[in-house]
Design a binder for these strands. Sequence first.
DNA 1: GTTGACCCTATAGGAACTTTAGGGTGTGCA
DNA 2: TGCACACCCTAAAGTTCCTATAGGGTCAAC
Lengths: 143, 143
Amino acid sequence: MKIGELAQVAQCTVETVRYYEKEGLLSAPARTRANHRSYGECHVERLRFIRNCRALDMTHAEIHTLLGLMDQSAADCGGVNQLLDEHIAHVDVRMAELSQLKQQLSELRQRCQSEQTMDACGILQGLASMETGPRHERQTHLG
Amino acid sequence: MKIGELAQVAQCTVETVRYYEKEGLLSAPARTRANHRSYGECHVERLRFIRNCRALDMTHAEIHTLLGLMDQSAADCGGVNQLLDEHIAHVDVRMAELSQLKQQLSELRQRCQSEQTMDACGILQGLASMETGPRHERQTHLG
DNA sequence: GTTGACCCTATAGGAACTTTAGGGTGTGCA
DNA sequence: TGCACACCCTAAAGTTCCTATAGGGTCAAC
Ligand SMILES: [Zn+2]
Ligand SMILES: [Zn+2]
Ligand SMILES: [Zn+2]
Ligand SMILES: [Zn+2]
């Protein structure tokens, strides 16, 4: 199976597949005489797994950890469960941040109900006079 | 006023100030004989404005547009109001996405209630068998 | 005259890709 | 046989908003 077919069944681009290989998420496949990558069924499964993790907004580091845990089939799945809990916490943090942001933006929006002159626009006044503290570090990988 | 003082009153780093100048958000100031940047009160105001916009997660492109609108003091503020509405929509979109994500993750988490063997872990089974469609284009700049 | 705090430019890195440049391979068709 | 065309290859740069580093210059105090 060539890279284009693999990409098609996994719903991503060939560039993405090559990128995952470079990042060490997908192992390097055999090559044909023409130096083309040749994939098997286990690559399909692994790539689908990775794409599903990405669809859930996990980082490459999280996915890498997960793949590592999975490959220790003798161990129990406690680490997997924990990783998922932590990732859910990332989502919760970002939802709370966005919720507060939305609140601030809504309040700002209310300060100009109709089209004013620039000088009278409550939004511009608000943006000029807000007192923003030092920027807080990002708590989560979700932007 | 030197760059270090400006950065301090605007709660950011000198590197950030220089970066904004390079990006065209902050106009290049006069220089001293020693080639050091020398800022006035209008730079303070503009930088604070920019930082406040960033605190509200606007992109540089959005801020650039906003600054352009502001500088046309003859016009009315309709464009400003519209830009803010659009940015609020960006936040709404991302909140909805995260909400759905959280839902999916919670369902997945429920598939493994105690520590199983890897093979039996419902989370890993779920991640292997999810049917993720082609990734949807990002609708918003908020990650 | 030397320490130290500040300033300068230019460049690289981070995340997760996408895009581009510049080529090689293999198959169908006239 | 010749050639178009779809596919494959690598390497490098672009995306966003900064941060960090390297390698230097300037200025006041002690
Ligand atoms: Zn996470
Ligand atoms: Zn207005
Ligand atoms: Zn926006
Ligand atoms: Zn489990």
